[in-house]
Computed example of a mutant assay.
Amino acid sequence: MQIATKRHTGAASRVRTNSKSSLVRDWQLYLLLLLPLAYFFIFKYIPMLGAVIAFKDYNMFQGVLASPWVGFETFREVFAMNGFYIALRNTFMLNLLDLLISFPIPIILAILLNELRVKWFKKGAQTILYLPHFISWVIIGGMAIQLLATNNGIVNNILKSFGMQPVPFLTEPFYWVITYLGIGVWQSAGWGTIIYLAALTGINKDLYEAADVDGATRMRKIWHITLPGIKPTIVILLIINIGHMATIGFDRPFVLSNPLVTDVSEVISTYVYKIGIQSARYTIATAIGLFQAVVGLIFLLSADYISRKVNDQGIW
């Protein structure tokens, strides 16, 4: 017993000594690490204290601390709003469609680019694909109106010149959802492709050479080598996307929306904007945001748990 205790004490002492020597040796790296830590603490963690507004009858003149406490009364008011359920339904619907349509496309594009042998064409195609990621959604919304407007859009003018009926891309709910998804794929697919291309570089090239010796076709190599090689990356990104099912960006639905398609375009982010900013109901907006965050965390943890049970892979 005494020998074991001495060994444990000696091991702990060595760990402390190694930690101190590492801190002294690499103090510049630890100093550089303080900057991102300070960023996350100041701009990510401290603002979390504002979540207490969801449990108060917030008055900007009284401040957060002096505003009267109302408990869960705000959440009861939120859950009684019909508009909240419409926004929640649309958020899940658009995110689910995005997951089904937009998620696989970067994988397919990365595999196609990886199979190309002409380097100049591969680099040019990759640049063209991820360039839309750097365009602001405000600009994209203006481009969509110029191209897809029912009366004077370029696309519908071309259709009318061929004697065809104009398509209400932005004014009819069904076509609006298709347009929303298509523009989203165009804007984000190329950037997502970069992640999978980076993962493809980690696959051992000897596996492809061995497959060539065995006479495997290109499709066989993709199925048995390429896809298993990037499977961990796919799983991690899938879990993260599932964790965002209850959240949605503000820019994309806001710039593409209009009063004619509010039934499908009103999402949580735009609803919070209308309630919190335009109507100055900050307590309601904070409660919705907090609910959204909790649901997103539940989705994230559930997806990670299921992935670990099925594939023995997760984000932690």
Rank of each mutant, 00 (worst) to 15 (best):
L116N: 11
T270S: 05
R308N: 14
N114A: 09
I315R: 10
D26A: 06
W27S: 10
A110R: 00
I239N: 01
G83H: 13
A287N: 06
T17D: 11
V138E: 00
N152S: 12
T262Q: 14
T233W: 01
A216D: 08
I154Q: 01
T226Q: 12
A38P: 15
S21D: 14
I225W: 15
G314I: 09
G163S: 13
P104S: 11
Q187T: 07
S19H: 14
N151W: 04
D263Y: 03
I108W: 10
I101Y: 01
V155I: 15
I194Y: 04
V272L: 14
L227G: 01
P228C: 13
A149Y: 06
G50L: 13
S307H: 02
Y196V: 02
Q146D: 11
A4L: 07
I240W: 14
E73N: 14
G192W: 02
N156M: 09
Q146P: 04
A211W: 08
A303I: 09
K221T: 04
I105D: 05
R117S: 11
Q2H: 14
G163K: 03
F174W: 15
T286H: 04
Y196H: 05
S21P: 00
H8I: 12
L197D: 11
L33M: 15
L23D: 02
D206L: 12
E73R: 13
L29I: 13
G182V: 02
I277D: 10
A11Q: 15
G184F: 00
I108L: 14
L227P: 06
I234R: 10
L49V: 05
D312I: 04
G184T: 04
A216F: 04
W186F: 07
W176I: 06
N156H: 06
A66V: 10
Q126E: 09
L131D: 08
H244S: 11
T193V: 15
W223N: 06
D57G: 06
Y273H: 06
I195E: 11
V24T: 12
I3Y: 14
V264A: 08
P168G: 00
K205I: 09
F61A: 10
R117H: 06
I242T: 09
L31P: 02
L159V: 09
P68G: 05
I288Q: 03
V78T: 07
R16C: 14
L256W: 03
G63K: 03
I139N: 01
R7D: 07
K56M: 15
S102K: 08
I42D: 04
I46Y: 12
G71I: 02
E266G: 06
